[in-house]
Amino acid sequence: MLKIKLNRLEVQVEEGWTILEAAEFYGIEIPTLCHHDGLSDYGACRLCIVEIGEGKDAKFVSSCTYPVEEGLVVRTHSKKVINYRKLIIELMLARCHTSKTIQDLASKYNVTSVRFKLKSDDCILCGLCTRMCEEQMDARAIGFVNRGKERKITTPFDIKSDVCRTCGACMYICPTCQLRCQGPEPSGAVCGGCLNIEYPCLDVYDDVHCYLDPCAACLLEESRKKKSTSNTEEKNVFNKD
């Protein structure tokens, strides 16, 4: 067992844990994108960064890849970390704003605008699919190709693969292609927020429609109600009645 300082709390952690695992154990939520419990850690999306060290030795590392060590000082929610997380999400949105996962992150961390040109790419290059294919499905059919701006995920030499079993695991795990955002502004930079606190769908239905993951409708319904004063189109977000 090792002792580390997690957000000013002195805690005990197992040797071999990553900072992310330690934080999860103590109930501290750190956002991730390219991390998955069943796959090896890659450290590409940088969303899980935390601040370690103190004073002028402080630096930022990805918590999913950094192993805990005796005496480590970790701040998961320092001011700089919060601001950096928002900017990272903003960069993600600028690349793949059609991804529900990324839009969810945006609304959760209060990213309301994107100051960069939208690229509308399909792939965030998180590498979940390649690791899934290699580590869980043992196929190694796809991988990263090229450098920098040209980086993409494909089969060797873009040739149809003999080892791909079309199992679909890559699509299953992909954060950008699994669920196209169905929100009210799918073509905009920020869709408007998928997380809410009230359930206006209960005005219409007997059960909440989104179970554990609230859907966009709510907050939007509120703002729509606020906006429309003399509109004839009084339909709610569900386009009912």
Binding site: G43, C45, R46, L125, R147, G148, R151
Partner: peptide, 17 residues
């Protein structure tokens, strides 16, 4: 930008932006 390996988002997307 040419020489970045492209693995991490901040370097790849950040430099591009």
């Amino acid at each position: 930008q040419e020489e970045s390996c492209g693995k991490c988002l901040t370097c790849r997307e950040g430099i591009e932006r």
